[in-house]
Design a protein around this nucleic acid. Sequence first.
DNA 1: AAGGCTCGCAACCGCATCAGC
DNA 2: AGCTGATGCGGTTGCGAGCCT
Length: 279
Amino acid sequence: MGRTPCCDKAHVKRGPWSPEEDTKLKEFIEKYGIGGNWISLPHKAGLRRCGKSCRLRWLNYLRPNIKHGQFSEEEDRIICSLFTTIGSRWSIIAAQLPGRTDNDIKNYWNTKLKKKLLGITKPSQTKPRQQKQHHQNHQQCCLPSPSPPLQGRSHTTTTTTIGGFPFTPATSGLLEVPYGQHQIKESSAMITLGSDQTCSSSDGSCSTKAGYVGGGVHLDSEGYLYGATELEYSSEEINQLLISILGCNNGGTNSNNLYLDYPTANAGREELEDPLNYY
DNA sequence: AAGGCTCGCAACCGCATCAGC
DNA sequence: AGCTGATGCGGTTGCGAGCCT
């Protein structure tokens, strides 16, 4: 009945790691690597710990080049940008932030960023605790509204406003969004989650893109956005995506028209494949 | 000064996925 | 193709530290 436990819980130590255990684990791994597999490692290293626990401790704390401490503003921006596009896929987000672990980012998001960005102010008898944080101005950045990550894709053809821009869905071809004078933030353009090529559904041509932002939208080197043809978004989803890519403040400079060309091939499809499966 | 409360973070848990047989 | 063990991942929990009354 049930699954077999990964280790004998009665005979392994749990809870916080002691400095001695850290040293043992670190020295063992530096000398022998993980020595075959994580399950057998604790025994070989002379630790009374579960293999999973050893792995976690190594990955999240002991591994070289782990960055601890405050997140920079740039890191904040990358996190919220990626969260907006791909949701809580912490390992993917962590891969974009050298030295940060998925656990770190998850904790940071859950305890700080989420509250900041969504403007959650818990009714409380007491005054909010003084934050050790260095920056206070993130409410204006990245998340326009407290909506869930991209999911349950829906098709829309209504004219609306996204990111402060007039938004005009057209009927054919490729999603193409001229930015005008808006600069693409470099880090967003460098995010790479999937193929670096997209193909036009209208003429069949393919081109290499400068960046793959996730959620099926590509940036090319000239500042154009391209949506993969198999994807569709509601205007609200694109709104989130663009705000996260363009940065915080479009500041009402809304003189540029954005055009969204939906591939006609997908017209009428009730349910589309989850684009995240393509990664 | 002490007790209560809140927050942040390390660690745990269980499910999903991968890899080898 | 199916089974089993190992690993990866994301959600959740528990504890310690700091703040408030």
